[in-house]
């Protein structure tokens, strides 16, 4: 970007916005200019949300989910089945599973996935309470991503639960629902064929 196009203060804002995922230079420019047209009250409200973001949104002391309180809404919900724990890589993925409406258990957020090459060992993951939580449950679903790091993480957790009386399952992998088979890539197709089920 030509640094002379905008005054420095606006330029700073544009550069900050362009750090967000999926935002290029051009979009950052549009967003910054749009913000500039907001009223003072609107901007103040927006600013306050940003300033208090980390303060207000904590992570749940039980599962690691986003939460306003000490514990998150899911952990406090008496209708949830605490004997089934679904393990996810990050808190954002809980919303995806919740939207599916197919799971009524509780979660455990790892806050990352194993990658020794990049210095992420088990000590960097939220595992302190994991084993003790599993001791009180009957099933744990490992919902880490189906790529190398996700598989390694799932396999590590399985090792860790060695000796614990619990059913360990892995989410199914293969063809997305509603997708046309002819557009499936070969790896997904192979996975779908290998994990087929009898009817």
């Amino acid at each position: 970007m030509n640094d002379n196009l905008y005054p420095d203060s606006l330029l700073k804002l544009i550069k900050t916005i362009s750090r967000l995922p999926g935002i290029g230079k051009r979009t950052a420019e549009r967003l910054a200019l749009s913000l500039h047209s907001w009223s003072d009250d609107e901007l103040k409200f927006f600013g306050e949300q940003l300033i208090s973001l980390k303060e207000n949104v904590k992570s749940c002391s039980t599962c690691g989910n986003f939460s306003d309180e000490e514990e998150c809404k899911i952990c406090l919900d008496l209708n949830r089945d605490t004997t089934i724990i679904c393990v996810v890589e990050n808190a954002g993925q809980i919303a995806v599973i919740e939207k599916s409406g197919s799971f009524n258990g509780v979660y455990h957020v790892l806050a990352g996935r194993l990658s020794p090459m990049n210095g992420v060992g088990p000590d960097k993951l939220n595992l302190a309470s994991f084993k003790s939580r599993c001791l009180e449950a009957t099933e744990v679903i490992l919902a880490t991503s189906p790529d190398f790091e996700g598989e390694a993480t799932a396999s590590f957790l399985t090792q860790e639960l060695n000796g614990v009386q619990i059913n360990i399952s892995r989410i199914a992998q293969g063809i997305p629902v509603g997708a046309d088979l002819s557009f499936a890539d070969s790896a997904s197709m192979a996975m779908a064929i290998n994990s087929r089920r009898t009817l």
Binding site: F148, A152, Q159
Partner: peptide
């Protein structure tokens, strides 16, 4: 392979990495 090598190098000789090492050996 790279992951296992990193774990091997980080090992303090106290077996704390055992299940991590096993994970990557399986893969």
């Amino acid at each position: 392979l790279k992951s296992r090598n990193v774990i091997l190098r980080n090992d303090q000789g106290d077996n704390s990495q055992e299940s991590l090492l096993k994970t990557y050996e399986q893969l």
